[in-house]
Each structure stands twice: as C-alpha cells, then as structure tokens.
Nucleic acid binder design. Structure first.
Lengths: 95, 95
DNA sequence: TAAAGTAGTTTATTTTATAAACCAAACAAA
DNA sequence: TTTGTTTGGTTTATAAAATAAACTACTTTA
C-alpha cells in the first residue's frame, strides 16, 4: 500500500532545499536561491517552515559588511528526508 | 541543476492514481478510492484534472445496475510520469 | 415505503505556494 | 550630500490547489 508523503517535504521548493542541504554541510541563502531559482520571498517563507519543523537550522551572521544566512539540515531533517524518499519510492516503481 | 517537477503529477493523490494506473491496464473508481484512501469527492476532482491534461481516460458504463467508472493511463500520461520520475530522482539522490 | 448504501459530482472552504511590496544597510555617483 | 541602486533579506497579500461538505441519482434492504 502507498504510504503517506510528508507534506512538508512534498513541495518542490522545500524538497529542493532539503536535497541541496543533504548534499553539503551548509549552504547560504543566496546559494540556495540561485540553485533553486526561487524568489527571495518564497525562499524565506519555505526556509522558515523547515526551521519550524526542526528539519534545518538557520544562522545569521555577517560576512564583512554583508549579511550571510547559512542553513544546514538537522539529524531529524535527515531522517525525515530519508523516510520521505522511501515512501516516495513506492509511488515511482513500475513493475 | 534540479529540474522542474510537473505540478500535475507532484501531488500525492494524483501521483498515487498515476502510480496505480502505471501498474495495471485499468482500474475502477472504487478500486482507486480504496487504494488511495481518498474521499470520493477529492478523487473525482483529481481524476478530472488528469483527464483534462490527457494523462488518463475515464470510461463510464454499468456493471449490472451499478455504475462502473474505469480509468486507464494514456501514452502521453505514461511519458509524463516517466519524465516526472526522472526529474524527481535528481532531488532524491544523496551522493 | 422509509432508511440506508453505493457511486459518484458539484460547490465551498481551507490550506498552500507564490508573488508583490516592503525594509535596512551599503555603495555609487552626480 | 542626497538621490538612486544593489544586496540580502522579511512580511503581507494574492492566486492556486487540495480537501471536505453537501448534494444527486439510483438501488437495496428491512
């Protein structure tokens, strides 16, 4: 039987964010924005949702005089991502 | 770079419908409803969207005295599903 | 023949994603 | 030196989507 798909991860942009963070230690707001082609507003909103869920952490500092927002995935985020991927595989396979 | 995910397929219920239909020649409304646990109303709406996109066909007949709605995936639907799966794989792999 | 069940559709509501507008600081240049 | 522009965002409003509720029509059963 097909499993539930975590709705927080089943969103193109949030999935892209998680996918990027699953493949690197940390990534900046600007980098994620470039990679996903998302608008800053949309990205900001979706990052916030992932933070609230405890899937990522966001750190704000300064790089010289420019603000630098860095994101990284938490253990719980990694686990949720893996569960999502497993659930999703059930939908994708054509026997 | 991450590819666009066909929004028509990137929906849990519609993806489930397509997944079922990719694995059988045809399936009834009732069967799909059982397998997906969707409400009849929601299922009806989502099937309609897939029909409009040309991804599935729906045939309505009678089985004895009961209405029988059967669905099956079209060639274009199969293609769209496969493209979606390929695009999605880009998001899932952790290197 | 009244009530309940089956197989759906249509419409309304809620949720979600996205875009637009906005803010603050820095730099640039006239 | 104050006007405009870019960077790096956040907040709020709007559009789109998913879902649920209400409804239809016909059948079965008590």
């Amino acid at each position: 039987m097909l499993k539930e798909l975590n709705p927080l991860l089943h969103s193109q942009l949030r999935l892209a964010i998680m996918s990027i963070l699953m493949n690197c230690e940390e990534a900046s707001f600007v980098y994620i924005k470039e990679q996903t082609q998302a608008s800053a507003g949309n990205l900001s909103v979706q990052l916030e949702k992932l933070v609230k869920a405890g899937y990522i952490t966001v750190e704000k500092k300064f790089m010289g005089k420019k603000p630098l927002t860095t994101c990284s995935v938490t253990e719980s985020g990694k686990q949720a991502f893996e569960e999502y991927v497993n659930a999703l595989r059930g939908y994708l396979e054509v026997k």
